[in-house]
Design a protein around this nucleic acid. Structure first.
Lengths: 215, 215
DNA sequence: TCAGACAAGAGGGTAAACCCTGAATTTAGC
DNA sequence: GCTAAATTCAGGGTTTACCCTCTTGTCTGA
């Protein structure tokens, strides 16, 4: 029986190479593609040759990240089953990836056995979801939060700019100077974001910004 | 000739396990310890048995991070040569780690050959530095930070507990209730940490705590 | 045994953050 | 061209955060 072919798309070469030697110890899998980012991977695919059956896709990559690459793969090479590999268990990221067409979402802190299980699951059922991801999907169906915008918060105008600055040690007065606004306008942005993100004070803003990689 | 023993301290199990299978393909090295964080590793060492010769140390870990662990290792188990493994090439992080006693600093996006080279270098010369790190060391000759405490931050007593709470939306009054202290004592912890972490306000505390995986 | 670090706390002041209401523009959708 | 949303700003209030100095008791190393 021929082995199932796997592609590894990850800019952390050491991790990628380590992962390769791990996967090559699995009886039924072999690594047929390796790429440092989505752009490189797409070019490899367009170069011809047998497509991989599964793609292990890192999320944070330069040039073309995991989310973008997955969306493109789903259109142009729908036979490739994408398994997302990520450092963080942020619910929004998971939901976005699933929506982009990923067949599963794995954290980088899992046990190798789980990886094998996920590979088998994707080949057998077409998808693989851990309990964590399942929970996220459930949450995404009926928003628990009293903030209706929480699942897809969009920042308008200079809100994002303000949010980044609010996550520094600057006072609002200083932020106003930097943004070339009156302190009262800055007050307005602050109160607006308090409501939007459902937080009580500036600490809440900073925590949100950092955990969502905005600051 | 007996193989050189290596410890892997990393909370990303998949990476750790992958790395293990990679290292076990190297002729002269074998993995003798695996731990999810610094705390676990220290407990393993104290449990007795032959110490590892080299420790591959992740930076961002829960409970006891790479910097803290390295500092402790240097005091209590100075024979263990620490090689830092990190995602980012932030100059300050590199300098801090070298000062804490790391014998080298590797990025996770390196080629496996470099890892082997680094292991060999550490065993042969006692250290291994890439060009990147060497540049940082040159820069570090004229101090970047004005805070003399920055290199080895140790949290005493309930400082860590306070720091976690200060990274929430609680007021200091509420924090005092939770910690069963007077608000004035909480004031004291705050001002103490301002100096220690060289920040100006609570936002600085929260940013530090989150970025160092303490909150 | 005595300095020095650590933990807990007090008094009292200024500055910043927070919260509310209201309102003038400009921009975008129908 | 009307409306709604977004952007900008004001007045004025309360609360919290920040900063400084000082005290008390405990524990520890030289």
């Amino acid at each position: 029986m021929p082995k199932t072919t796997v592609a590894i798309i990850d800019d952390h070469t050491l991790f990628a190479q380590s992962l390769k030697s791990l996967i090559n110890t699995f009886d039924n899998y072999t690594v047929s593609y390796e790429a440092q980012n989505g752009k490189v991977f797409l070019n490899q695919l367009k170069g011809g040759g047998a497509l991989p059956e599964i793609a292990l896709m890192d999320m944070n990559m330069p040039i073309l990240n995991g989310l973008e690459t997955t969306a493109i793969l789903n259109k142009e090479f729908p036979s490739i089953k994408v398994l997302a590999l990520s450092m963080d268990d942020d619910e929004n990221s998971i939901i976005k990836m699933i929506r982009a067409g990923a067949k599963g979402y794995l954290l980088k802190d899992i046990h190798p056995d789980i990886l094998l299980e996920a590979l088998n699951g994707v080949m057998r059922d077409g998808f693989y979801h851990t309990k964590l991801v399942s929970n996220s999907l459930v949450h995404s169906l009926h928003p628990i939060s009293d903030n209706p915008n929480e699942t897809s918060i969009e920042f308008l105008g200079r809100e994002l700019e303000f949010l980044k600055l609010a996550s520094t040690e600057m006072t609002y007065k200083e932020i106003a100077v930097v943004m070339n606004l009156s302190p009262k306008t800055v007050d307005g942005y602050r109160d607006q974001l308090f409501k939007k993100l459902n937080v009580k004070n500036r600490i809440g803003l900073a925590v949100y910004a950092i955990k969502n990689n905005l600051a």
